[in-house]
């Protein structure tokens, strides 16, 4: 499983602050941050700890198994963010 960031995200990186394994991108000092339209969770590194979901002020984060139907596509959207940053993740799951 993994956690997934969805449409309401406002990029306030509360989730980044609490994530114990630094698997949420871009971080505020990364080059892509200022132009980011949302943040993304690396499904390979996420350990399902739930901390980000609890910290998110706009309820944008869901455990994959609790994703509302209309946002199922965000599983792929989160994963793809890391696929296009191949230096960080070699392999991204597509288990939708």
């Amino acid at each position: 499983m993994s956690y997934v960031i969805t449409a309401p995200c406002v990029a306030d990186y509360s989730c980044v602050e609490v994530c114990p394994v630094d698997c949420i991108s871009p971080m505020p000092d990364d080059s892509g941050f200022d132009a980011a339209t949302q943040l993304y969770i690396n499904p390979v590194l996420c350990v399902d700890c739930d901390a980000c979901r609890e910290a998110c002020p706009v309820n944008a984060i869901f455990a994959e198994d609790q994703l509302p139907e209309k946002w199922l596509d965000y599983i792929g959207i989160n994963a793809a963010h890391f696929q296009s940053h191949t230096q960080t993740v070699a392999e991204v799951r597509h288990d939708k």
Binding site: V10, A11, D12, A36
Partner: peptide, 16 residues
């Protein structure tokens, strides 16, 4: 400061 770019959270870093 930055012009009308970025979303709510972009301003958190900017303010920081």
């Amino acid at each position: 400061k930055r012009g009308p770019k970025g979303i709510i959270g972009s301003n958190k870093k900017c303010a920081r």
